[in-house]
């Protein structure tokens, strides 16, 4: 019996020693063992939630290791004897990081340079020292900027003017969660105003295709740039106009007769065009097809968007 007990004790010791000598297991990323021996969810920088994301899908051989993004970080792992504080990893991404922005984004671009990020380096964000990590949360199961219902929280951190415009009564349904800033803007791209398409009109036509024409009677600003008349982030004026008729129209049109009317409210019911430029739909009370008309009626007014 004693012999058996000795054998059991020896066997347990051997198994225990073998277990102790086993290399530490990776937890969420390939090769993360040497990082997760210190960094876990109790740390100042919780890391494990990355496993909930595409980055943490270990079945995909393309997914990164910790060092893919943070660098080998030798001195961070093995603190030099003469160091009073543990040196930071080679690349850090936090608010107080000393890692240059281009290097921070470079860590992401080593895998994500394709698709919409092809021209990232040309973008206004990149040249203004915005890094990927300025907007994206990597070690989180939920990246707010990639969800249209929460994306504006990130964008409004810098874009204050757009924040107040979006809160005006006439706006695109962004705060209602039906659109996002990224519905119109490719924030990683190199187009002017970082739009998703090559021009303002091409971008607007993705949802407002009826304005594309060509029409029998074109209104040139519609073809050139919707933003000549509209403020797409929001205004207090119906149809997101930049200014109210007749003032908006009078930014281009100077005429002898009713188009040159001053702003005024009519005393009562009227069909006189010189009294209707400010109320109801303003100039559009009559020029109702202002984006273009397809009328071939043999009338001079056909060309003035009234048919």
């Amino acid at each position: 019996m004693r012999t058996v007990l000795h054998i059991l004790i020896l066997a347990t010791a051997f198994i225990g020693q073998a277990a102790a000598q086993q290399p530490r297991k990776d937890m969420v990323l390939n090769g993360d063992a040497q990082c997760t021996r210190c960094h876990n969810e109790g740390d100042e920088y919780p890391v494990l939630a990355i496993a909930k994301t595409k980055h943490g899908t270990m079945a995909d051989a393309r997914t990164p290791t910790c060092t893919s993004c943070h660098g080998a970080s030798e001195t961070h792992v093995n603190r030099p004897a003469n160091a009073t504080e543990r040196p930071k990893p080679d690349r850090t991404f936090g608010k107080h990081s000393k890692t240059p922005m281009a290097e921070r984004s470079g860590a992401c671009l080593s895998c994500h340079q394709g698709s919409k990020r092809m021209e990232w380096q040309m973008s206004a964000h990149a040249t203004r020292d915005v890094a990927c990590s300025s907007c994206h949360k990597i070690h989180s199961g939920f990246d707010p900027v990639r969800d249209k219902s929460t994306q504006t929280d990130t964008c409004f951190t810098c874009h204050k003017e757009q924040r107040v415009q979006m809160n005006r009564p006439v706006h695109h349904p962004v705060l209602e969660g039906k659109m996002a800033c990224s519905s119109c803007h490719n924030v990683h791209g190199g187009f002017p105003k970082q739009l998703v398409r090559a021009s303002v009109t091409e971008t607007c036509f993705t949802c407002h295709m009826e304005k594309r024409g060509p029409f029998v009677h074109n209104h040139p600003p519609v073809q050139e740039d919707c933003a000549i008349c509209h403020q797409p982030h929001g205004t207090t004026i119906p149809s997101m106009l930049k200014a109210r008729p007749p003032f908006l129209c009078q930014e281009c049109h100077s005429h002898t007769s009713h188009p040159s009317q001053a702003g005024a409210l009519p005393n009562g019911r009227t069909v006189t065009n010189s009294l209707l430029g400010s109320v109801a739909r303003g100039c559009l009370n009559c020029h109702t097809n202002i984006h273009g008309s397809n009328s071939t009626q043999n009338s001079a007014t056909s060309g003035r968007f009234r048919r």
Binding site: A262, A264, N267, T272, S274
Partner: peptide, 10 residues
């Protein structure tokens, strides 16, 4: 213009 007769004030 518009005529003061039709509006409260120009």
């Amino acid at each position: 213009f518009p005529s003061a007769a039709g509006v409260s004030a120009v």
